[in-house]
Amino acid sequence: MRLPLPRRAVLAAAVIGFAVLPPAGANPYFIYIANLGLVYVLLAIGLNMLIGYAGQLAFANAALFGIGAYATGLLRVDHGLPFFLAFPAGVAVATAIGVVIALPALRLRGLYLALASIAFAQFCLWAFVHWERVTYGAGGVRLPRLSFAPLPVSVEVGIYYLTLGLVVLMSWLAWNMLRSRVGRALVALRESEVAASALAIDLTRYKAYAFGVSAMFAGVAGGLFSALLGIVTPETFDLYQVVSHFAMVVVGGIGSLWGAIIGAALLVGLQEVLRAFRELQEIAFGALILFTVLFMPSGLIAFIKRFASGWDEPLRRTEGDR
């Protein structure tokens, strides 16, 4: 007997729970952590589209996250654009770069794609640090304070609601995409390229879509992240960032939209608990990935599906589904 814990009710409760934090008087630090968790939800969903659904083992997500953050921040600082113009422009830059790196990546598979994308991530990190004329170098770039005037909210609360709104919107967009022929084409691509193309699926086009969509999610996350922190620094987008996104997807459930959300929330929470010990964070994330791969390869979402009903989703059958 599975618990009647329908997804709609849980999601509605979660959104309402997040929405009432500020008026309920949660302290600013708690709101900041909740906001960070929401940013990572976007990153995890985007990465899951690429790795989990389309099966492209690429690790460029952290770099694209950085590109979104830098582009948004620099457009404000250097070109004086208001945030509400700089942000979509930053997303467009990240998406465009995501599609451009997809072009060479289209020829690479498996391990080679993984290696090439890690090289790209390292190159971006290097550029963030050393391309000082543009990025302001190792010290990072400090951003002007945002203002949500004339809305009657503080900057922190404004960014928080903006993030929450975008998480709801973009989860919905992702969900819709997955339950159409686009989602099926991505999974077909993952399972067998030759069988997918025998069903008239254009591999090049759908790989480019997968890279573009995940880059767009990373870009949105980056723009919000820059606003949330008020500063963009290069070391934020290092290998640790790469590993965290990957850990969220794996722990939550590869190829599951809800899994990505759960994984992001859980790991941001864990990261905060271990905030004082960065080495411990890395070990904990590594251990969690290992544990999941060995004992729970379908991720936490499979566990939830086993004990609660109503969590079926398109393109994902696990033992928990029946």
Binding site: V187, E191, V194, A195
Partner: peptide, 10 residues
Amino acid sequence: KMFKGMTVLE
């Protein structure tokens, strides 16, 4: 070359 993860209908 069935696509795993998808249902038969999908």
